[in-house]
Computed example of a mutant assay.
Amino acid sequence: MTVTALPGAAGRSRRATLRRNFWRGVWRVLRRKPSRMAGVAICALFAVMGVAGPLLYPAHLPRDDDALYAPPSLSHPFGTDFEGTDVLALVVTGSRYVLLTGLATAVITVALGTAVGLFAGFRRGWQDTLLMRLTDLNLAIPGLPLLLVLSTVWKFESPLEMGLVLGLLGWGGIARAVRSQTLSLRERGFIEAARGLGLPTTHIIGRELLPSMAPYIAMNMLIAVTGAVYAQVGLFFLGVLPFEANNWGVMLNLAVFSGGALTTPAALPYLLAPLLAILLLTLGIVLVVDAMDEIFNPRLREE
């Protein structure tokens, strides 16, 4: 019993040590540049805003008919809109739909793209050909016309519904990239050794190939979040989707087409607030991706 337990205990201790060393390395990389810490803080702020922000406000935000387009003040940091509603409250309550859609899109896009790319690149043969033809078909689907058609029968009230559609439309590019990475890695020595030991395909893909591409997949997931934010905000701004939920795209649409933000200086805060939120979110993700590039790249860490 003792002889059997020692290797297990030693393995657990080694894994715990590796985890501690990894997080220490992450902390060192983040501290090296203040901008990276700022990126983490920005992403954390938006995460808190999306989770807890809507809980701080009532379901129906109060309106003040005597304060239409009120200028920024202590009570209204970004002023009010054309209905007398606090603009900051609109930004905070609208963040949940935007962030949940971005997260759902990123998860679906990365999960599908990674699975297809890994399997196609590793198996080769007719499976590779079939999956790549499906990928080409996905890349050829015109997203905007399809969403125009779907919007006539689907209101996209839930961010998960929007994330599902955007994710199903956007996995082709990641599948192509992951397949290329897999074709390169499958000829490496450690993969040949795993094959020689007779390990099953699921083990080789899940334990050998996938960890090697985890940094690339993680960065693509963050980038997919920004792409989903732009896509959904753009669709709501253009009026393609019905305004069933408050979000930043709806704010931009109402500010430009209903609130006269392009002609009335008093309406500019209502237009600039969601734009600033999108800019800050994108900046935070870009700074985190920069940190991840160094965290997972030994050459950059040595520099």
Rank of each mutant, 00 (worst) to 15 (best):
V48E: 07
L222H: 10
V165K: 05
L56W: 01
P242I: 10
A89W: 03
R32T: 00
V229R: 07
D81N: 11
D81E: 09
R63I: 12
T93I: 07
S212D: 07
M292D: 10
L103M: 14
L134G: 06
P298Y: 03
I204Y: 14
S180D: 15
L281P: 06
F296S: 02
A104H: 13
L210D: 14
E244I: 15
P211Q: 04
T80A: 07
A115R: 09
L235S: 02
T202G: 13
I108V: 14
A177Q: 15
V225G: 02
D64H: 04
L6A: 02
G198P: 06
A214T: 14
L283V: 04
V29Y: 05
L139Y: 09
W126H: 13
A245T: 11
G94T: 15
M49I: 08
Q127G: 06
M162Y: 02
V256I: 07
N247I: 08
D86Y: 03
M1D: 15
Y97I: 09
G163T: 00
P142W: 05
N253S: 07
V240E: 10
D136N: 08
L88P: 01
G11Q: 09
S73P: 02
G206T: 14
L45M: 10
Y69V: 08
P34R: 03
L168G: 02
G234Q: 06
Y97V: 06
R133C: 04
Y69L: 15
A111W: 12
F46P: 00
W248Y: 01
Y69A: 09
A228L: 04
G173D: 07
P265M: 10
V289M: 00
L130S: 01
T101C: 06
T105E: 13
G227Y: 07
L252C: 00
S35Q: 13
V116A: 05
V3L: 15
W171A: 00
A267Q: 03
G125D: 11
A41G: 12
V240W: 08
V240T: 13
D136V: 14
T282I: 10
T85N: 04
E187T: 15
R207T: 13
Y216E: 12
Y230Q: 14
L74H: 03
V153T: 13
V92K: 02
